[in-house]
Design a protein around this nucleic acid. Structure first.
Lengths: 202, 202
DNA sequence: ACCTGAACACCGTTCAAGT
DNA sequence: ACCTGAACACCGTTCAAGT
C-alpha cells in the first residue's frame, strides 16, 4: 500500500493515466472504473479525486494522449508522402489503420460522451481542430485557386466521411458481407470525393 | 403496484419498451437503467428479466424501433424526390435531420456497444443492411453502366460518410467554428462524391 | 498535508420465497 | 404461474478521520 509522500502529485497523476490507459487497452471502456485504476496504482479511490475532478476529466486526458498518438502517425504519413494526391489517400488510410490497431483507445474518444454539464474544454477542441488543419495543409496545394474557406469545408467533409466509415467498420455495422473490404470503401470515398473536389468549379 | 396476471407477457414487453423509449428520449443513454424502466412500468426489476435476457437485449429492440422510424423518414424522402440526383442529396439530409430531431434515440444506436460475448444478432444486421439497399436503389439508375457491386461500395462509402459527419456534428467534434454550417459540409461530401462517382470510369 | 476507508446513492442481475 | 424483494457484486463520488 502506497504511503503518503511516496509520490509527488504529478507522479500520482501520471500513474493514474498510465493505469487507466492499460485498462482501456486491455478491456475497453466498459472495463474501466475509478476503483480499478486506484487498485492498479496501489492507491485508494479517494486519491484519484484529489487529482482529477472526476472520471470524465481523467478520460479527457487519456483521449488527448490518444489524439497525440494519432497525430504522430498522421505526421509520419505526411512526411512519407510528399505528393499531395497520394498523401490524402494515405492520411485517410492511416486514420483507419490507427483505429484498427488501437481500437479500444480510439473508441474511447467517441464512446465517452462527457456529461452535459461539462462541455468539451477549449484545449481539447483546439487539439481536434489541429487534425483538420493537418488535412487542410495537404488539400490546399491541390486546389490553389480555391479559397481557404472551401478547403476548410472539404477537410471536414472528407475527414468526417472517413471517420464514419471507420466507425461503422469497427463496430461491425457496415455490412461488408460481400467481397468488399473496408479499404475499398474508404478508397471509393476519397477518390470520388477528390475527383469532384479538384475538378469542381471554384 | 401491478399484480400478477394484470398484463400478458406481450403487454409487459411493450410497456417495458415504451417506458425505456420515454426515458431515452428525455434523458439519453446515461439516464436509462433497468430499475427506472421497471418503476416507470409499475413493476419490479426482476420482472424485466422474465421478458428480456438482459438490458442489452431490450436496447437492441429499442434500436430496431428507431431504425424503423428512420427508414420511414427515408421512404417518405424517396417518394418526394423522384429525380435520383436530388434524391441522393435529400436522403443524406434526411439522415442528418433525423439524427438532429431524435438525438437521444439515434445516439443510442451507436453508444450502445453490445457486450463482446453477444454479437449483433442476424435480424438486426438484416435491418441495417436494408438501409444500404434503399440507397443502392436510388444510386443504380444514375450509373446504369456500373455493376451492382460498385453501387454497393458507393452506397457504403456515401452512407458511412454522411454518418460520420452527422456523428461528429451531433457530438460537437466537427469544429464548425467558422461560418460553415453542417449542411454545407454534408452537401460538399454528397456533391463531390457523386460527381466523381457518376463521371468515373466504370 | 496526504491519504484512507467507510459511507451514500446508485447500478445489472439473480433467485428463493410469497400469493 | 407470476411477480416480488432482498441479496450479490459492483459502480462514482464525498469526506470525516487517521497518521
Amino acid at each position: 500500500m502506497a504511503r503518503r509522500s511516496d509520490h509527488s502529485r504529478d507522479e500520482i497523476r501520471q500513474m493514474a493515466l498510465d493505469a487507466a490507459e492499460k485498462i482501456i487497452i486491455q478491456h475497453g471502456y466498459k472495463g474501466l472504473s475509478a476503483r480499478k485504476i486506484a487498485t492498479d496504482m496501489g492507491y485508494t479511490v479517494g486519491t484519484l479525486y484529489l487529482i482529477f475532478k472526476n472520471l470524465d476529466e481523467l478520460i479527457l486526458h487519456l483521449n488527448m494522449h490518444t489524439l497525440d498518438a494519432l497525430y504522430e502517425q498522421m505526421g509520419i504519413t505526411v512526411e512519407r508522402n510528399p505528393a499531395p494526391e497520394k498523401c490524402v489517400q494515405a492520411l485517410c488510410r492511416a486514420y483507419y489503420d490507427f483505429a484498427c490497431s488501437n481500437t479500444h483507445r480510439w473508441s474511447l474518444m467517441f464512446e465517452h460522451n462527457l456529461s452535459e454539464d461539462m462541455g468539451i474544454p477549449e484545449w481539447f477542441s483546439a487539439k481536434v481542430a489541429y487534425g483538420f488543419t493537418l488535412l487542410e495543409r495537404v488539400l490546399q496545394p491541390l486546389v490553389k485557386e480555391k479559397k481557404p474557406a472551401e478547403v476548410c469545408i472539404a477537410a471536414r467533409a472528407l475527414w468526417g466521411g472517413v471517420h464514419g466509415i471507420t466507425m461503422l467498420a469497427v463496430t461491425d455495422k457496415l455490412d461488408v458481407s460481400g467481397v468488399n473490404s473496408v479499404t475499398e470503401i474508404l478508397d471509393s470515398l476519397v477518390e470520388n470525393y477528390m475527383q469532384g473536389f479538384v475538378s469542381g468549379a471554384g
